[in-house]
């Protein structure tokens, strides 16, 4: 119990710190690298919550593929520290921070007051979660899964089409 709390709070501290640095780092590459650390920390939290396979997928997909793409694109542009990293206006900035804080407060209050409605766990998922996940994915959620496949195909074609736009080093005149 004590170790559980210590583990959770240290992970939470690092996650919040990295997320904070993601927002405040002036250099976009630094913020991308902090976001990578956030993703890895989230994978650890997922593992902690018993979602072992999801934690592995988080490492592969987010930390290993999506964020590598982000960092690569940022390096390709060779962006340095930006002059205008943040939006202008002190008043509107404060308003934005306050609204984000209010949103978080609503989440806090909502989850705090309504968590008792949740049913107590019927049965904890057994050890072989990944196998059950696969079976569920190919039976109950088959249509959603197929739709995702179609979506990915469309996105792949769209990305190729968008990135062949004129200009840059690969222009076709």
């Amino acid at each position: 119990m004590l170790w559980e709390a210590i583990g959770f709070y240290s992970l939470a501290f690092f996650l919040i710190f990295f997320a904070y640095k993601t927002i405040t780092a002036i250099n976009p590459i630094h913020s991308a690298l902090y976001l990578v650390l956030t993703m890895i920390g989230l994978a650890a939290v997922f593992y902690d919550l018993g979602a072992h396979f999801i934690a592995g997928v988080q490492l592969i997909v987010y930390a290993g593929a999506v964020m590598v793409l982000f960092v690569m694109v940022l390096m390709l542009f060779d962006l340095r520290a930006e002059l205008r990293a943040f939006s202008r206006g002190l008043f509107s900035g404060m308003l934005k921070i306050i609204s984000a804080g209010l949103l978080a407060g609503i989440f806090f209050a909502g989850s705090d007051s309504s968590i008792a409605i949740l049913d107590t766990p019927a049965a904890a998922p057994s050890a072989d979660v990944s196998r059950q996940l696969g079976i569920l994915l190919y039976t109950k959620y088959l249509y959603a899964f197929e739709a995702l496949g179609v979506l990915l195909l469309v996105v792949a074609v769209g990305v190729v089409a968008v990135s062949r736009i004129k200009g840059g080093t690969h222009a076709r005149h």
């Binding site: 072992h52 490492l59 690569m72």
Partner: peptide
């Protein structure tokens, strides 16, 4: 970790960062 292969794949996909960090 109970997810053997997936963990090895996930961790070795992080190797790209070393090269990116070195280059940058």
């Amino acid at each position: 970790f109970g997810i053997g292969v997936v963990f090895v794949l996930g961790v070795s996909s992080l190797a790209a960062y070393a090269l990116l960090l070195a280059g940058y």
